[in-house]
Amino acid sequence: MSKVIVVTSGKGGVGKTTTTAALGSALAMHGKSVVVVDFDVGLRNLDLIMGAERRVVYDLINVTQNQAKLHQALIRDKRLENLWLLPASQTRDKDSLNEKGLGRLMKELKAQFDFIICDSPAGIERGAILAMRHADEAVIVTNPEVSSVRDSDRIIGLLDSKTEKAEKGGKVEKHLLITRYDQSRAGRGDMLKIDDVLEILLVPLLGVIPESEQVLRASNIGQPVTLANPMSAPARAYSDAARRLLGEAVAMNVPHERYNLISRIFGGRAA
């Protein structure tokens, strides 16, 4: 059975592409056949994060417009043989993605892969809607700060109304992934708590990815963080999230709010 998962957020720069690459490779490491699809037409980045930028020949637009066959556009990962990338177009306009061609492509991908992970562009316009259009599930990437949470709320509304699933009376299964979680700021009480975000958005938690320089280091060398440094905190957090996506019950290991505990011990106000 194949699953289409959109990685989406509304707000830009919160970690969608990082997440797509990390979850995609983690799922592939579990033996699943996975394709990560870059929907950020005109601003493709997933190829860079996956380290495949020099191997792009054809792209998503070429395939949806019948200028190339799917197998010509798919790029096989050099490290994991069951991981593939379908890049976005860098030169074309984002309006060149048409819905009919996309529907055909998704059907074809579903016949070949266990997981189709769609890296959504930022925003709530057409590009983001097309990325979520065929999704069975959604990973909503949120940073623990006000504007990101607000945008996630908008995206949740769109997932419930603009997807094929929603139009047919069904529901896209939603998962909340909190990324760039900074322990020291949380300790000072200057970052929204995980519980606060969950309570506001009412979407079940898939995982919490800590803020980490390992993410930048991995992107520098063109490797998903889960492959670049599998023992690092963000890599482990992403692997746990991937296992949860596979239905495993993995204990939620939220980077603990250490300073909070201390303030409680010393009688301070619990932030």
Binding site: D153, L192, D196, I200, I262
Partner: peptide, 26 residues
């Protein structure tokens, strides 16, 4: 341990603002 705790924490304010705002926007 907590030199910055002298400044009041801002997250509770963020939480409240979001709750109010989102109930409007929804």
């Amino acid at each position: 341990w907590k030199p910055r705790e002298l400044e009041p924490s801002t997250a509770p304010v963020a939480r409240e603002r979001l709750q109010v705002l989102l109930s409007h926007e929804r």
